[in-house]
């Protein structure tokens, strides 16, 4: 009951987060309709300041900054969402498998993941992307797989606590297969904390994609993306031109708003078990 109430009445911070995120999602979905100019269209001189014609000015090769940010929401948010989704599909499946399938499988998977986690993720990603080249698909698969190791760790640690409960034992005694136990007995009970984690991982991946683009290995031109836009316009800051600040602001706002929503979801899940039983 308490949880349903707090689901209906999120705190003000979570509401602000939702509004901002919703705004960017609308931008991403309806970019061609909303944006005043095209994504790769050169419309003016380099680095014009704010004007009624170009609200946020133009970039290093005279494209409209506002339009680029609106189109950039598509790439940046879309790629981050795809990476996170992929990493959760892999990580949760493997994590539950490790918890359910017994000691040997668990040891093999867990030690492999430990091995992978010992390599810094940014270095790893840069290595793979520079070897395979940075197409959209490689980018998503690389980040998704690398991130799934972290998801695996969490999913496994939640699942091992569920696997020892008697209702899972009942399922085993009934003769249920691994897949059923993972999907029907364990997964529904592991879901609430995983949803909160999804938000956090999304934020991380979003920053990661932006970071890779900033380094030139992420989303490739002419597609607009916020990290890349910061890099392209970075030099202008030395001349007192605010161009790189706009995409940076978009990155910051999205990160903060997702975090505010996640904080709220986490606070619901962090309630003592007695309270969550009322769900």
């Amino acid at each position: 009951m308490a949880i349903q109430n707090s689901l209906r009445n999120p705190p003000i911070s979570a509401k602000i987060g939702m509004v901002i995120l919703l705004f960017f999602i609308i931008c991403a979905v309806f970019a061609p309709v909303i944006a005043p100019y095209g994504e790769a269209e050169s419309v003016g001189k380099t680095w014009i300041g704010s004007s009624p014609e170009f609200w946020l000015g133009t970039d290093n090769i005279g494209r409209d900054m506002l339009s680029r940010i609106i189109y950039g929401a598509r790439m940046t948010l879309g790629v981050a969402a795809a990476c996170t989704l992929l990493s959760f599909v892999i990580g949760v499946t493997m994590g539950l498998l490790a918890a359910v399938a017994g000691k040997t499988v668990d040891q093999v998977l867990s030690r492999f993941v430990d091995l992978m986690l010992s390599i810094p993720i940014l270095v790893f990603a840069l290595m793979i992307l520079s070897m395979l080249g940075s197409s959209l698909v490689t980018l998503i698969i690389t980040i998704g797989v690398l991130d799934s190791f972290r998801v695996f760790r969490l999913a496994r640690s939640i699942a091992v606590n569920i696997v020892v409960t008697e209702f899972v034992e009942v399922a085993r005694l009934r003769g249920e297969g691994l897949w059923w136990i993972m999907r029907r007995e364990v997964l529904p009970n592991a879901l609430p904390p995983m949803i909160a984690e999804f938000g956090l991982r999304f934020c991380f991946n979003f920053l990661f994609v932006a970071g890779l683009s900033f380094l030139g290995l992420g989303i490739q031109p002419p597609f607009a993306d916020w990290g890349g836009m910061v890099r392209e316009n970075g030099r202008s800051i030395a001349f007192g031109i605010p161009a790189p600040l706009w995409p940076a602001l978009a990155i910051a706002l999205t990160t903060i708003s997702v975090n505010m929503i996640v904080d709220w979801i986490l606070s619901i899940n962090a309630r003592p078990s007695g309270a969550s039983a009322e769900m």
Partner: peptide, 28 residues
């Protein structure tokens, strides 16, 4: 061993637990 028992063996012996709270999946 549980794994060596046939499904029919499993069906014919059922277990009822002490704590009904934890013997039922709360999401079902």
């Amino acid at each position: 061993e549980l794994k060596q028992r046939s499904r029919e063996d499993l069906r014919k012996i059922q277990l009822i637990y002490q704590q009904p709270d934890v013997a039922l999946n709360p999401r079902h």
